[in-house]
Amino acid sequence: MGKVVLVTGAARQLGGRFVRRIQRDPDVDRVIAVDAVVPPHRLGSAEFVRTDIRQSSIARVLAEHAVDTVVHLAVTGGGPGMTGGARSAVKETNVIGTMQLLGACQKSPTVRRLVVKSSTSVYGGTSKDPAVFTETSQPKALPVGGFAKDAVEVEGYVRGFARRRPDVAVCVLRFANILGPHPDSALAEYFSMPVMPTVLGYDPRLQFVHEDDVLDVLRLAAGEPRRGTLNSGTFNIAGDGVLLLSQCSRRLGRPTVPLLMPAVTWLGSALRAVGATDFSPEQIRLLTHGRVVETTQMREVLGFEPVYTTAETFADFARGRGTGMLPPERIGRAVHRVAGLLDVDVSDGAGEGAYR
């Protein structure tokens, strides 16, 4: 008998793609896809069970199908342009849903592996943060709201579960910002704005991970460990290198408008109010201070090597955005002409130093 894998969050784009991907694993016998709504996409041969993980019914699903591997992808920041009620529902799914799922896993005699999708946003974002975060780094200030706070709480519950069920291999994957041809995030909406507001005086360093690499590392974490690797623990997942926000805007051909912090905060509130984009305080902190993580553990312990660098991930994303108001090559030439007059180096080399 092969593995029986349960995947939460199957109605979202990433969850649906992973459900279809994991079915091709020769060690997997059945895939149980779970969500509170019917997915708008195909799930292949997976069995879809419509259930809300915030309810105790998730325990019956685990028992009825004798699930041995759980991949928890229903921890999300939601979609852009959400109303207040939708945000509350997302938070409940993230936190209360995770608690219910972990309670069901704790009682299940068949569950042997748990993979949880988390985020590097758990490190927060302040001016006092280190240049590079490792998995053991503690944030200078814990996130006070939004998806980052949800992720911190989720990881706390997962650590408690791991102590109570030491026989279960638990893997927490902290993803950098996920981009690709089919992104589904507030940051992707921000990069799609015709004019990108930025915080005056700041040019943050950003890291990205390609959605195809996300699927590959989830599949690796859900499988049996290869020799010399360990599919349990907490791992930062990101592509090599960094990009400055100014480099991102030039590659998209979209101009930026530097604003004072109070103006950026007001604009973010206004955009959220009209449902244009989820320009949250959490995202504003990222676009002010940036965030870079070390990925040595990802390679040496988990045994995963991303196919795409940060720059390649962004390039793949940019190809699907179309040409902005200003052609990228014209922006690049103008920047370099000004730099030549000022005798400064503005190399757009995608942040040559790879963080590993």
Results as ranks from 00 to 15, higher is better:
Gly124Ser: 08
Gly124Asn: 11
Gly125Pro: 08
Gly125Arg: 01
Thr126Gln: 05
Thr126Ile: 01
Lys128Cys: 11
Lys128Trp: 07
Asp129Glu: 10
Asp129Arg: 03
Pro130Gly: 12
Pro130Phe: 06
Ala131Leu: 13
Ala131Gly: 12
Val132Pro: 04
Val132Phe: 09
Phe133Pro: 07
Phe133Val: 06
Phe133Asp: 07
Thr134Trp: 09
Thr134Arg: 09
Thr134Ser: 11
Thr134Ala: 07
Ser137Tyr: 04
Gln138Val: 06
Gln138Thr: 13
Pro139Trp: 06
Pro139Val: 14
Lys140Gly: 15
Ala141Asp: 07
Leu142Arg: 14
Leu142Val: 06
Pro143Leu: 08
Pro143Arg: 13
Pro143Tyr: 07
Pro143Asp: 08
Pro143Gly: 07
Val144Ser: 15
Val144Lys: 14
Val144Glu: 12
Gly145Leu: 12
Gly145Thr: 12
Gly146Phe: 07
Gly146Ala: 15
Gly146Tyr: 04
Phe147Asn: 05
Phe147His: 10
Ala148Pro: 01
Ala148Lys: 09
Ala148Phe: 05
Lys149Phe: 13
Lys149Ala: 15
Asp150Cys: 14
Asp150Glu: 14
Ala151Gln: 02
Ala151Lys: 00
Ala151Gly: 00
Val152Ala: 11
Val152Leu: 09
Val152Thr: 15
Glu153His: 13
Glu153Arg: 15
Glu153Asp: 09
Val154Lys: 05
Glu155Gly: 12
Glu155Tyr: 03
Glu155Ala: 11
Tyr157Ile: 11
Val158Tyr: 09
Val158Thr: 15
Val158Arg: 10
Gly160Asp: 14
Gly160Trp: 14
Phe161Thr: 14
Phe161Ala: 11
Phe161Asp: 12
Phe161Trp: 10
Phe161Glu: 09
Arg163Val: 08
Arg165Gln: 09
Arg165Ala: 06
Arg165Tyr: 14
Pro166Asn: 01
Asp167Asn: 10
Asp167Val: 10
Val168Asp: 03
Val168Gln: 04
Val168Thr: 08
Val168Glu: 04
Val168Phe: 06
Ala169Arg: 15
Ala169His: 14
Val170Asn: 06
Cys171Tyr: 02
Cys171Leu: 05
Cys171Lys: 04
Cys171His: 02
Val172Glu: 09
Val172Ser: 13
Ala176Ile: 01
Ala176His: 00
Ala176Gly: 08
Asn177Pro: 11
Asn177Lys: 11
Asn177Gln: 15
Ile178Tyr: 12
Ile178Gln: 12
Ile178Asn: 08
Ile178Trp: 14
Ile178Met: 12
Ile178Cys: 13
Leu179Tyr: 02
Leu179Ser: 01
Leu179Lys: 03
Leu179Met: 15
Pro181Val: 13
Pro181Phe: 11
Pro181Met: 15
His182Ser: 11
His182Met: 08
Pro183Lys: 06
Pro183Met: 03
Pro183Ser: 05
Asp184Gly: 01
Asp184Ile: 03
Asp184Gln: 07
Ser185Ile: 00
Ser185Asn: 01
Ala186Asp: 04
Ala186Trp: 02
Leu187Ser: 03
Leu187Cys: 04
Leu187Glu: 02
Ala188Cys: 13
Glu189Thr: 07
Tyr190Met: 01
Tyr190Val: 01
Phe191Cys: 00
Phe191Ser: 00
Ser192Asn: 10
Met193Leu: 14
Met193Ile: 09
Val195Met: 03
Val195Ile: 10
Val195Arg: 00
Met196Trp: 10
Met196Thr: 08
Met196Gly: 05
Met196Asn: 07
Met196Gln: 13
Met196Ala: 10
